[in-house]
């Protein structure tokens, strides 16, 4: 069932159309191509009670949690890579500030397979994982299944099907076909698992020249494409700009107390929408 051709529309309109209060929203990008600009637009539009899904809720989810967008977090590793803790996430978990936050915690292999199941139209995925760990005691989307052929017991994880997946890519063509390359993360699976998909891109080009290892997402699986140059910063876009490691280190100071974070949030909200 082909969908209509995606609209190439401004980011503010795309977020307004596709992301609603209470939605389950996945912003994916494994260190690379993290859709920061889209996350910031969700903050500006003051979305609330979101279930935020992401393997690595790093700075972008720390910012969205601190801004009060989230009621629930589904994740597998929550830290500032190479730097330290996510202070806003910790504050929400420990003190309920600015909103109480529930968590649903997995391993990376579990989360990746949940997206695969979601993209595949299956209710769950099978993997060798979690056995002997304490996570299944606390996470009810982890269970076991017995192999009908060998009798072996394996881990089963519930499929993930976000209401909206948001990813960033290097480029799209005028028809809205999207091309991304470098570290691919789980973006393809997260987009195909979602009910709606929004892709921000560095640029629109006339033709998507084939590149080794690149993933192309056809226009008809995407609802909206928004052109946001630099939209993955301070993460990076392979071939366009590097990861701003200094910004990741600086976030540790900005996020450490509520007041400093409040200043950051105010300046973000006063900034113009992309």
């Amino acid at each position: 069932m082909a969908k209509i051709v995606p609209k190439i529309i401004p980011l503010a309109q795309a977020v307004s159309d596709l992301v609603h209060d209470g939605d389950t929203v996945a912003l994916e990008g494994f260190t690379h191509l993290i859709p920061f600009a889209a996350g910031h637009e969700i903050i500006r539009q003051r979305r609330r009670r979101l279930t935020l899904v992401r393997m690595t809720p790093d700075l972008i989810y720390d910012q969205m949690i601190g801004a009060g967008c989230a009621a629930r977090l589904v994740f597998s590793w929550g830290g500032n890579p190479g730097v330290g803790s996510l202070h806003r996430m910790r504050d929400a978990l420990a003190a309920g500030w600015p909103e109480p936050l529930q968590i649903e915690e997995h391993s990376h292999a579990g989360m990746a397979n949940r997206y695969v199941a979601g993209a595949s139209g299956l209710p769950f995925a099978v993997l060798r994982g979690y056995s002997g760990t304490d996570l299944p005691l606390h996470t009810d989307t982890i269970s076991t299944v017995t192999c009908p052929f060998t009798g072996e017991e394996l881990a089963a994880v519930k499929a993930l099907n976000p209401d909206v997946t948001v990813v960033h890519a290097q480029r799209a063509d005028r028809a809205g076909n999207v091309q991304l390359w470098g570290l691919l993360g789980v973006q393809k699976e997260a987009v195909l698992a979602a009910r709606r998909a929004l892709v921000t891109v560095e640029e629109i080009v006339d033709e998507l020249t084939p590149l080794p290892g690149a993933v192309v997402l056809p226009a008809w699986v995407i609802e909206a494409v928004s052109v946001v140059p630099g939209g993955a910063a301070p993460s990076y876009a392979h071939g366009y700009y590097d990861r701003d490691n200094a910004a990741y280190r600086a976030w540790d100071t900005i996020s450490r107390d509520r007041e400093t974070f409040g200043g950051w949030l105010t300046s973000l909200q006063e900034g113009s929408s992309s």
Binding site: W77, G79, E105, S107, A109, L127, Y130
Partner: peptide, 8 residues
């Protein structure tokens, strides 16, 4: 931070 890839 949590599990990441470590359990598997």
């Amino acid at each position: 931070p949590g599990s990441g890839g470590a359990p598997e």
